[in-house]
Design a protein around this nucleic acid. Structure first.
Lengths: 334, 334
DNA sequence: CTGAAAGCGCTTACAG
DNA sequence: CTGAAAGCGCTTACAG
């Protein structure tokens, strides 16, 4: 089957006008007489003409494409943010290119270069690359950094209030009556983890509780290791703050192995509030990041920069809250 | 900060050659003298020149972009396939545009139109849209349909062997000694679900077991409903085939509520083998779809069609296998 | 081996 | 209001 592509010149010929006029009708960029408008619209309708975006992009220097660069979409939190970004992009006529970097700086650089070459309108990136700021120094398109502070060369940053997250999670456990609270502390080179740690420590201090922690990365398997270490070092722990919901899930496994009861022996608070946390058994109390809003704001910032050439607020910190579910419960007599 | 974009003409001037020669050096499309090649490469290196892909696309009518249209990336299986697609695309210098359709035909159509307008090189779609085939009839770019049979107008299809999946899952439960096996049957308008059902029924017949089923959609919440109905209708069920791993997870919840023991009272087999199935407690026996391979093949088919204008095998059915974990166990004396 | 020229399919000053 | 022309930044016949 041969499919004949129709171009703007075909429409022009059919409607007896110039290509310029057709373009004006399509984009509404200038007044066109009613009669010609009608003829153009008819021709477009009849042929199913779909303007070539690439040609338009070349002239406009904008492809209405946004790159989302993350370690991996297999990380549920990043996947949920990606969904939110894609939604907001779609609403505004943009498309999202998904880029999994595996935290590999070369892959990140390759993607940034690709996106630049494509006249992407913006990049949303979450990376732990030391050189990222240098990397995007010569990037002519807006770069929004997610989940960390804005470097010198990026356009803006969006993150949630990790300090408060760490603090209120701890306070919640304290209110529930926990005395031996242990933090599964995420990698301290991530400023999100560092902030949560600080929030945790401050809450402990304020309530005269001794801070304890084990280091924990964000993957499930490493979560299992950390959880084992946790109960080795703190066998009497009665409250645990997991670094993510997935790590909390890993913690469940160890708790199950050790036949500890939740929440009676140990209470648990996760972090992120991904969809999964509501499904776990027992359902997981967790610190909810405003995932929808994070995604929406990242896109909005890019549109703002593209449209006005500047941005109202460069560093954006979104509020978090504790979603109380079955893994925490106020103890009798507290 | 002003970023000066360098163009091919700048390189040409710096190297004292024509743009054509620069292009030839970059693309290796023709012999260029050593001396000029050196000068061009030097200029490119010095300026960090990054060719404008949009301009190239316009001429080449290929943007090296592949669209992945799915109901939602929040579906873990689709997210994992997406990761595999993106990997394979990256390896070949392609980028993936992620499109969540929410099973909304209008969104699907909008995305297909967008992708056509962008000279995308291919579309990978999984949809249950009756009119999809008509939709892509006038689509000049290759369309690979995932998880269902190829319609008349699509380029190719990729799916795993759902009939066998249903059959071997059932046989596994039978071998484990289950007598009252219930299928949580996915929507029968999906041919994948239908095939699994047929495989289940055939396995039952062959072993003189009566087929039983409850209808179940693919979401967690609907899974919970179906699981409740299941034990209402078949309180003595000793083996359950869940329609997906996520539905199996929903089943866990109901089983937990009803204090049934797994695998002693009920054995469970999931479907898909998403990462989550290995993390569940107990770990889930499931029918593994070759996720990596599905993604890779979808991309390969598009490249094949793009490169050769034809495809070796239009309908592709990939093998499945049972991954045995803790939810099934051979009963004593079987 | 190499350059001038045409062309990819649009959009927008410019002139009327 | 409208069209002819130039231009977006590349690539590739074409001619030498």
């Amino acid at each position: 089957m041969v499919i004949i592509l129709v171009h703007i010149s075909d429409i022009a010929r059919m409607a007896g006008v110039s290509s310029a006029t057709v373009s004006r009708v399509i984009n509404g960029t200038a007044k066109v007489s009613e009669e010609k408008t009608r003829r153009v619209e008819e021709a477009i309708h009849k042929t199913g003409f779909n303007p070539n975006e690439i040609a338009r992009s070349l002239y406009k220097k904008s492809s209405r494409l946004i790159g989302y660069i993350v370690p991996s979409i297999l990380n549920i939190f990043l996947s949920e943010v990606g969904r939110a970004i894609e939604d907001e992009a779609f609403r505004n006529g943009y498309k999202m290119i998904l880029c999994n970097s595996d935290e590999n700086p070369e892959k990140e650089a390759a993607y940034i270069k690709m996106l630049m070459g494509m006249n992407a309108d913006g990049i949303i990136i979450t990376a732990n690359n030391e050189n990222l700021d240098e990397e995007i120094r010569h990037c002519p398109i807006p770069v929004v950094v997610m989940d960390k502070n804005a470097g010198t060369h990026c356009t803006a940053s969006v993150q949630s209030d990790n300090y408060t997250g760490g603090r209120i999670a701890t306070e919640h456990l304290i209110e529930c009556g926990c005395k031996k609270i242990v933090l599964m502390r995420g990698p301290q080179q991530y400023c999100s983890s560092k902030q949560r740690y600080l929030g945790y420590v401050d809450a402990c201090r304020r309530h005269q509780i001794e801070p304890r922690f084990v280091n924990s990365r964000y993957s499930y398997d490493e979560g299992v290791e950390s959880a084992r270490e946790l109960f080795r070092r703190y066998p009497d722990a009665d409250g645990v703050l997991a670094s993510t919901d997935l790590v909390a899930f890993a913690l469940y496994k160890v708790i199950y192995e050790q036949k500890r009861r939740v929440p009676d022996d140990v209470m648990i608070v996760g972090y992120d509030d991904v969809g999964l946390s509501r499904l776990m058994i027992p359902t997981l109390t967790t610190v909810a990041q405003p995932i929808e809003e994070i995604g929406r704001l990242c896109v909005q910032l890019i549109l703002e920069q593209t449209e006005y050439g500047t941005i109202q607020q460069r560093d954006n910190v979104l509020p978090v809250s504790v979603k109380i579910r079955e893994t925490t419960k106020r103890k009798e007599g507290v």
